[in-house]
Write a protein that binds this DNA or RNA. Structure first.
Lengths: 209, 209
DNA sequence: ACCCTTCAGTGATACCTGTCACCAGGCAGT
DNA sequence: ACTGCCTGGTGACAGGTATCACTGAAGGGT
């Protein structure tokens, strides 16, 4: 477990003074794996920076369906929270901790001030918008142009990229939920991929080659 | 045709001095209907604000498929151009003028400066990010959770919202392209909607009830 | 008036994916 | 050991959508 000093090295692009300014106003929050960080419709009063762990950001619809947008890792910030916080609006996505996670919560008022005072903060915000926007574009590409097998492959790829591990500890059902598909479809596609030698299937685990 | 003075009233939220500052550095560009404003991969050196007309922003894939993201109308700015311009990166979307359009092109260097000097510019940029992000979320919702009939309905709705007209002057083929579907499917769905009395079909025109 | 292109309608067919039904194996708690 | 639940595998089937083939109608240009 990293302690709370470490976050400064994570955001080393922040200029002198900025980290201290953030420290003054921000609150550190811990979430256990599976805990909901933010629920659709919930009012947002803070921007969230991830210090440790992994946060899953997804969209929910009325009928209980869900659809993964992206994961946030250490050093990343939630673009939705940045936008919503700056405009005092409710969240339009749901965020859940996939692992035990540590977040730095920065109140809106503080954000406003940092924005004008610190160029590196402003650049960080812009950069965050950009990378999340990019990620959304990729998601749209896949869901619009690709079949489920390619979307699954992309999903597994992103997962290993995010965790840095080749073993994916998820049930087929969890994957199906993230892709808004069904377990049977995912099982069959995974089986095909296994037969092609792209991966090996275990219980609650997929090992990429 | 509005002349070039009018744009200041369009962006009336800009604080005193900002419009003049923009005027100094910006260039007005005109595009005929159908002209390509920006192509995927093209390098962006200016932010684009729409003064008049309608710009269609869509994603292209390698095989020639396309997928509509949203339209930009007068008073709106292209979030992609704002982001790309600030980071000197290539475009990841294609922009085409749907009608004869007038755009205000603001070079990157000028943007940087306005950003720190004018709060109302900074807020405009944030607001632009936010609304485009929202729109993308809606698009994702539809493509992830909805069937083609609902997507078509949403598409027609957006179209009339954007143009302010109840008559949609598009061929079925054009609609199919925007939704990344096929003409036959769109024709059939439109026929069903006509039979239900939701609209009336003409050649190259759909009239919503 | 005629030709030619574009647009729209429609049936047949195939594929992808979601759903249902059912089974078997693993794992946890009693 | 028994029970029950979660996970994964599999076949059958259905609905939605893409594709192909063909038709006829509308409109523009000559």
């Amino acid at each position: 477990m990293s302690n709370q000093q470490d976050w400064k090295t994570l955001f080393s692009q922040f200029e002198p003074g900025l980290t201290e300014a953030i420290e003054q106003d921000a609150v550190i929050k811990e979430y256990k794996a599976g805990e909901t960080v933010m629920r659709t419709g919930q009012f947002i009063k803070s921007a969230a920076l991830v210090i440790e762990g992994r946060i899953k950001i997804y969209r929910e619809n009325q009928e209980g369906g869900e659809f993964l947008m992206y994961f946030l890792g250490p050093g990343q910030a939630c673009a939705v929270s940045l936008i919503c916080a700056l405009q005092a609006r409710g969240s339009e996505v749901t965020a859940v901790a996939e692992e035990d996670s540590t977040l730095l919560m920065l109140p809106v008022q503080a954000m406003e001030q940092l924005m004008s005072e610190y160029k590196s903060w402003y650049q960080f915000v812009i950069q965050t918008y950009r990378s999340r926007f990019d990620e959304l574009l990729n998601v749209i590409d896949h869901v619009a142009f690709r079949n489920m097998d390619e979307r699954l492959r992309y999903y597994l790829q992103r997962y290993t990229d995010n965790t840095g591990r080749k073993n994916i500890e998820l049930s087929h059902q969890q994957i199906a939920d993230d892709l808004h598909s069904s377990r049977e479809v995912i099982s069959r596609l995974l089986k095909k991929m296994e037969q092609r030698g792209e991966l090996v299937l275990y219980r609650n685990m997929i090992s990429l080659k």
